[in-house]
Design a protein around this nucleic acid. Structure first.
Length: 428
RNA sequence: GUGGCCUUAGCUCAAUCGGCAGAGCAUCGGAUUGUGGAUCCGAUGGUUGCGGGUUCAAGUCCCGCAGGCCACCCCA
């Protein structure tokens, strides 16, 4: 066991892991372009207060999972690594006066987030999210656009069985009355509550709804549903979201018990859920509307909605479904030579090919020719270029490693021959 | 933060009752001084996660710690 290891809950993404990640990030970028979401990037740490206020001071994320940075001096501000992206993006929206841009402002970002909790498969202390936000539009249409965009990502990534769970959790106008009714309901059934749930009844009755305790299932099923207690405006918004989603053909399941753990959510709450998944990390992503957040962080009252998709969990899901990762890039040409010592000649020819735009590699060691060709084969090269005595006449051997054929070509026509061979094979 | 299971070479795993730490794959080399994914041969690679204890003797038994996984908590 080596002396040093990646810190607990973090891991190295090795060359063999990278292709699937590159595919997912380029898919996110492609969807962002199609849907009109511009890139944004905010710092990986912020003043702790941004998260305390933006995420909610009494949430688990802030209370027990925040990665706090030790200040270097007493005068230093208290910083924390970001546990999610929305608070920082909204902070940037306010700081840079983005309310003067055409509204809503559509932005997106792929990057690492940090939460200090106990690692498990699909749950890490450093993990990657694709975060998408639309700030400045209160209508239900943008909710549907965002929800469909997230669903689209899973579909195009290759996950066919991802379902959207949808709920409305009301707003500060109507939610308190509902929470009071809910509390009243569970108080009536106090004797049936497991100990852990009793504590929640006092702190956050909404959380009782998404309890995983099997003994709670019947109780939850009989509980008042928030969607039946929305004010007219919230009701109308929720119906609007559903109507837009229906029109788009997005498979949606209304889930009255879906409440999300972050304080700032209003109205729309949604989650992407993988059916038939092993383990508890079935939530692939989630999001919701946060109409009070901009104001909380010092801006004018501004509505907003967004989601965060956990890319680590998508990678895991793709592996579980047996969906193959993209092949690593194979070189078009591998330059070998009869003289094992002639690394200068090999590197020179490879460099010329590279300058001509060809993916070329060369053995820069001292292997004999047979070993060089073995290397070329194992790296999946299409052609081997063999430098030998023919160089005196300006000729090299061009060997097609897939076909097993070989012929001499002039060195100054080498790049063109390889390009021709590549294109016929790719389209043949 | 709570509980359970696990940890032997880069990877996947053996090692009888406590008795000399091994194999396959991978890597490097040879068979083959100008011709490749096969085959054969060889080499490199270990403080058995770390620390302590019991014992003539510990990969094996005991204790602690770390890390991984699982279930909670919570979330992505």
């Amino acid at each position: 066991m080596p002396e040093f290891r990646a810190p607990r809950g973090t891991r190295d993404l090795l060359p063999v892991d990278r292709p699937v990640w590159e595919r997912l990030t380029s898919l996110a970028g492609d969807l962002a372009r199609r849907y009109g979401y511009a890139g944004i990037e905010t710092p990986m740490f912020e003043q702790t207060a941004v998260f305390e206020r933006g995420v909610g001071a009494v949430t688990d994320i802030v209370e027990k999972e925040l990665f706090r940075i030790q200040p270097r001096t007493e005068e230093s501000e208290a910083w924390s690594l970001r546990p999610e992206a929305t608070a920082g993006i909204v902070r940037a929206y306010v700081q840079h006066g983005m309310r003067t841009l055409p509204q809503p402002v559509r932005v997106q970002y792929v990057g690492p987030m940090f939460r200090y909790d106990r690692p498990q498969a699909g749950r890490y202390r450093q993990f990657w999210q694709w975060d998408v936000e639309a700030i400045g539009d209160a209508g239900p249409g943008i909710d549907a656009e965002i929800i469909e965009l997230g669903h689209r990502f899973y579909t195009e990534a290759g996950l066919a069985n991802v379902q959207v769970l949808l709920n409305s959790i009301g707003d500060p106008g109507c939610r308190p009355a509902y929470v009071a009714r809910l509390r009243e309901y569970f108080e009536r059934h106090r004797s049936e509550l497991p100990g852990l749930e009793l504590a929640r009844l006092a702190s956050n009755p909404l959380r009782l709804l998404d309890s995983k305790d099997p003994d709670m299932a019947a109780l939850i099923a009989g509980a008042p549903r928030i969607v039946d207690h929305l004010c007219d405006a919230c009701r109308e918004h929720f119906d609007g979201v559903r109507a837009h989603l229906d029109a788009l053909g997005v498979p949606v399941r209304i889930e009255p018990s879906l409440v999300r753990g972050l304080d700032y959510y209003t109205r729309t709450a949604f989650e992407y859920y993988r059916e038939g998944a092993e383990g508890q990390q079935q939530a692939l992503g989630g999001g919701g509307r946060y109409d009070g957040l901009v104001e909380l962080l010092g801006g004018r009252p501004t509505p907003g909605i967004g989601f965060a998709l956990g890319l680590d969990r998508v990678v895991l899901a793709l592996a579980e479904e047996g969906i193959a990762a993209p092949e690593p890039v194979r070189p078009a040409a591998f330059v070998a030579s009869a003289d094992p010592a002639d690394s200068v000649g090999r590197l020179r020819v490879a460099t010329e090919l590279r300058r001509a735009g060809i993916a070329a590699r060369a053995d820069l060691g001292t292997r004999r020719l047979g070993r060089q060709l073995e290397q070329a084969s194992r790296e999946g090269a299409h052609f081997a270029v063999i430098l030998g005595d023919e160089l005196r006449d300006g000729m090299v051997q061009l060997r097609d490693l897939r076909a097993g054929t070989q012929h001499a070509v002039p060195l100054d026509e080498l790049a063109r021959s390889i390009q021709r061979g590549e294109s016929t094979h790719h389209h043949g």
